[in-house]
């Protein structure tokens, strides 16, 4: 049985990755699972310099999901290169760095620095974070700007360039085509949906930032629809995510057209869920007499 998939020039041993912001730098999970079993891991967003993130409270539990407004808290690319990279570079899985920024120059600067790291085969360009005042989602909701930042990063980043798309748009396919045209090797979707939570008793918003990004099973139907639509209209591989909690969810994304999946919020509740999903995909393939997982991509039967 062959579980391997290709994302541009990047070969993953299986289609299961972890989503940025839900897996730290991988180290936090070493007690719970063997990280080398993963197809890949997308580590926490990196920006050019230290970011404290948004004030507490940053989280609200919602029906079948949660809102967060962490706001890209990280210690900056220099810290990543000097302190974190040496500790994780030999984890024996595809390590993808989520690259974020407030300006086009910042994206380029971070991507350039990550390009020099031998054991980082790919970046995920985050033009879809809903929780920062400047940049983030602003780059990912306008096709022209999305294409511009993709093209600028493409010039300095020589390895696999994945662009992470925002669902907070009228037409995700329009953005997808623009980003593909600007040189992206793959697309990952969806980032969180912009939402909010209110405490009726105190008559105040739950999050300090009022709005935040919704994740979890609540967004899965939207994510499936967007993966399906997007994979129909681009030629590059699509990495699907949004509310994947178990094997069945992951299979659904593959059938909708994803070549690989990212598991996010589920890691918070079951830190070993990704390795369980990998085993689950194997048994699904046995049950359905599928030899290579690639056959499942886009295998949705619409009569």
């Amino acid at each position: 049985m062959d579980l391997s998939v290709n994302i541009g020039n990047l070969r993953l041993k299986n289609p299961v990755m972890t989503a940025s912001g839900t897996f730290g730098y991988g180290e936090e999970y070493l007690d719970f699972l063997d990280v080398s079993q993963l197809g890949g891991m997308v580590v926490k967003a990196v920006t050019s310099s230290n970011r404290d993130g948004n004030p507490y409270p940053r989280m609200a539990e919602t029906p079948s999901g949660m809102l967060n407004s962490v706001g890209l808290q990280n210690k900056g690319v220099h810290h990543f290169v000097q302190e974190i990279y040496p500790r994780i570079k030999d984890l024996n899985t595809a390590i993808v760095v989520n690259v974020s920024g407030s300006t086009l120059e910042e994206y380029v600067e971070v991507a350039e620095k990550i390009n020099e790291l031998n054991n980082i085969p790919a970046i995920e360009l985050n033009i879809s974070c809903p929780n920062v005042k400047h940049g983030g989602m602003a780059f990912g909701t306008n096709p022209r700007i999305a294409a511009e930042v993709t093209a600028s990063v493409r010039k300095v980043f020589r390895k696999t360039l994945i662009v992470k798309l925002s669902p907070n748009v009228t037409s995700i396919t329009e953005i997808a085509k623009a980003v593909e045209g600007a040189g992206a090797d793959a697309l990952s979707l969806i980032n969180t949906l912009l939402g909010m939570a209110i405490d009726a008793e105190s008559q105040k918003p739950v999050l300090s930032t009022v709005t935040g990004g919704l994740s979890g099973p609540a967004i899965k139907p939207i994510a499936l629809r967007m993966v399906w639509q997007t994979s129909q209209c681009v030629h590059v591989p699509v990495i699907g995510m949004g509310g994947i909690m178990n094997t069945t969810d992951a299979i659904e994304f593959l059938l909708a057209g994803a070549s690989a999946v990212e598991v996010g919020t589920a890691n918070f509740i079951n830190p070993a869920v990704t390795t369980q999903i990998i085993k689950g995909i194997e048994s699904y393939m046995q049950r359905h007499k599928v030899n290579t997982v690639k056959e499942l991509t886009g295998a949705l039967k619409i009569k």
Binding site: T22, K44, N68
Partner: peptide, 17 residues
């Protein structure tokens, strides 16, 4: 006691200044 999603250091939701 801050609200948290994961409890083991990855979600960054429970921060205090």
């Amino acid at each position: 006691e801050n609200t948290m999603a994961c409890g083991f250091g990855v979600c960054l939701c429970c921060v205090t200044p």
